[in-house]
């Protein structure tokens, strides 16, 4: 991106919100040409940013089918919630998003709780479908905005879904990447480790190291996470927000100052 592009945007738009950068980053990972194709994406958990990233990909003209499980109208399934898992079991959901109360350096997820089983320290809601989805989708994008040593730990207290599996255990895929409020990590299932892929504005390798409880690899100069393009920003603030506002009214109001139309 050229300097003049940058000045053009600054003149035309309010500053890029960190959430907008995260959404664009997730969208780039969805479209990553080195990853298996994303023809059908399911978005489950409550975070609106993965949903916005999927809408951004779709509204940029990529032919992708979205199954948004939290959308009140237009639920994609007619056979109840098991249909998502049946589709995924067959390999017909290409990409899913997961987070975790704790995530460790081997991409193990803990959605159950800290301390002794079943979370006698701090209890999180529970595993949902993660112990199945993480195995059965060709790839998972991990997303957790809070980037701190209490979330990104060396070893999770409890494994609700393992990051890698022993040879011989049926598994279609693993984490592709972990996106946080500070950076993007790429996951390498062959060595069960993350490497630092890009740094969000204001972050350094050292600041990320300080906030991360697990060791990770750094290969050469780590680039900055790119800003959303002009076209992406226009879509986010326009038609992506239009699609999101019914399901995520608070998010759209906070980021884009948009109110849902009265029903």
């Amino acid at each position: 991106m050229s300097a003049s592009d940058h000045q053009g945007r600054a003149a035309m738009h309010p500053a890029i919100a960190p959430e907008e950068r995260l959404i664009a980053t997730l969208a780039r990972l969805i479209m990553d040409p080195s990853a298996p194709p994303a023809r059908h994406i399911a978005v489950g958990a409550a975070s609106p940013m993965p949903a916005a990233a999927c809408w951004l990909v779709k509204l940029m003209g990529h032919p992708v089918k979205l199954s948004l499980l939290h959308k009140r109208s237009g639920n994609p399934f007619t056979e109840g919630t098991r249909e998502l898992f049946d589709l995924t079991g067959q390999g017909r959901i290409d990409l899913f998003f997961l987070g975790g109360g704790q995530i460790d350096g081997q991409a193990n997820l803990n959605l159950v709780g800290t301390g002794e089983w079943p979370g006698m320290g701090v209890r999180f809601p529970g595993s949902f479908g993660s112990a199945f989805m993480y195995f059965m989708t060709p790839r998972t994008i991990l997303f957790r905005e809070e980037h701190s040593p209490r979330v990104l730990v060396e070893k999770v207290d409890n494994i609700s879904a393992p990051g890698v599996s022993a040879p011989g255990v049926f598994r279609r895929g693993t984490a592709q990447a972990l996106v946080t409020g500070k950076c993007v990590f790429r996951f390498h299932p062959d060595r069960a480790r993350f490497s630092l892929e890009s740094l969000h504005p204001g972050e350094t390798v050292d600041s990320v190291r300080e906030a991360t409880g697990f060791p990770f690899d750094v290969e050469g100069e780590v680039p900055a996470t790119p800003d959303p393009s002009e076209a992406e920003l226009a879509l986010l603030r326009g038609t992506v927000c239009d699609e999101m506002v019914e399901t995520y009214p608070e998010f759209c109001a906070r980021i884009w100052g948009r109110r849902a139309e009265a029903a």
Binding site: R82, G89, S127, A131, Y134, F135, V169
Partner: peptide
């Protein structure tokens, strides 16, 4: 869902992928 589907069918169990290696199991 699978445990309930086994009951629907009147069979003793269902098989399911995934889960192996988790503390849930």
């Amino acid at each position: 869902h699978s445990m309930l589907q086994a009951s629907e069918k009147g069979i003793p169990f269902m098989a399911l992928r995934g889960i192996i290696g988790s503390d849930i199991l």
